[in-house]
């Protein structure tokens, strides 16, 4: 027997769940319908009618490098920010004295709330000039490693600068989520580790990090989502190109989907808009795939999560 409140709750919850699926489906349908003119265009039509569309390329050939640039920028940002975020979160949750931890946590939450355009301005105006010597040093000393091959461009409006700003941008949100997860680590298991003669770091490795693993992955996905879709920071820093390039220190190599949409949209004719929406559809698919992959990773060791 279910009372009125129980029924009301059930329908509200079911409705909310259904609404999310409906919105997702609506977005997908919108993207496909609006991208259709570009997707169904005969070969050569796109470059004929759109002045910025590269000569003699198909739609897929156009989208490919953009997908590459998007994934590259976001992946490097994640590689830079993940260790830092986990480290800061651990410091706040398990090492810092309580007052320092509270202050730091507050600052992190504040940083997470800053709009990305501000990070873009900061990166473009303040950080960029200061990066040139660092990138030149990288090219001089690690130039044998292809991504760091020189000469480093000056000014460094390159993908590595973009990734660095993106890393700073997603650091607070990843840190904030990781900190919450680490604070939830059961005292029961922390004490079990300590009683076995674990040092603080060994305790963290035994009881906190394994427990927090699904949360760390979720935090990474949240950060990756922001990095993949980031528009302003990329637009304001990167000197774009359209190559499948690994060169991180040279200008005119890569471009991301979101920045490209923002760059071309104001002057696009209907077919141009349709082409840009097709690239948006690609971005939509990327985020779906990445999130599903993350879910699969989390689910793989479900029995060992401690949730049972």
């Amino acid at each position: 027997m279910e009372g009125f409140a129980g029924r009301a709750f059930r329908w509200t919850a079911t409705g909310a769940g259904a609404l999310i699926l409906a919105v997702l489906a609506a977005v997908a349908v919108f993207l496909i319908i609006r991208a259709w003119p570009a997707m169904s265009a005969r070969s050569g039509e796109l470059s004929e009618k759109i002045n910025w569309f590269p000569e003699g390329q198909s739609l897929l050939q156009f989208i490919g490098p953009l997908v590459w640039g998007t994934l590259l920028a976001a992946a490097i940002a994640l590689i830079i920010s993940m260790p830092l975020s986990v480290g800061i979160a651990l410091f706040i949750s398990h090492y810092a004295p309580r007052r320092l931890a509270n202050t730091l946590g507050y600052v992190i939450d504040l940083l997470a709330a800053i709009p990305s355009v501000v990070y873009g301005l900061w990166g473009g105006l303040w950080l960029i000039p200061k990066l040139q010597p660092a990138w030149a040093w990288l090219a001089d000393n690690f130039g044998w490693f292809p991504p760091f091959a020189g000469p480093a461009s000056d000014p460094p409006r390159v993908i590595l600068s973009v990734s660095l700003v993106l890393a700073v941008m997603i650091l607070p949100i990843i840190t904030a989520v990781c900190r919450e997860v680490f604070l939830q680590a059961p005292v029961l298991h922390e004490e079990a580790a300590l009683a076995l003669g674990a040092t603080r770091w060994e305790m963290v490795r035994m009881a906190v990090l394994p427990f927090g693993r699904p949360g760390i992955i979720s935090a990474a996905m949240l950060g990756l989502g922001r990095a993949l879709g980031e528009t302003m920071a990329v637009l304001m820093i990167l000197s774009p190109g359209a190559l499948y390039s690994l060169a991180l220190l040279k200008v005119g190599q890569q471009q991301t989907i979101a920045a490209n949409i923002a760059l071309q949209f104001p002057e696009a004719d209907p077919l141009g808009v349709s082409t840009l929406i097709a690239t948006g559809l690609a971005l939509f698919v990327i985020t779906l795939v990445v999130n599903m992959a993350a879910r699969a990773i989390v689910a793989r060791r479900k029995d060992f999560s401690g949730a049972n």
Partner: peptide, 21 residues
Amino acid sequence: VAVRRSIGMVFQRPNPFPTMS
């Protein structure tokens, strides 16, 4: 840490590490 390695402890609630076999 050395003290705890030579004096073991069993707690009120069983606390095997859930992420380990």
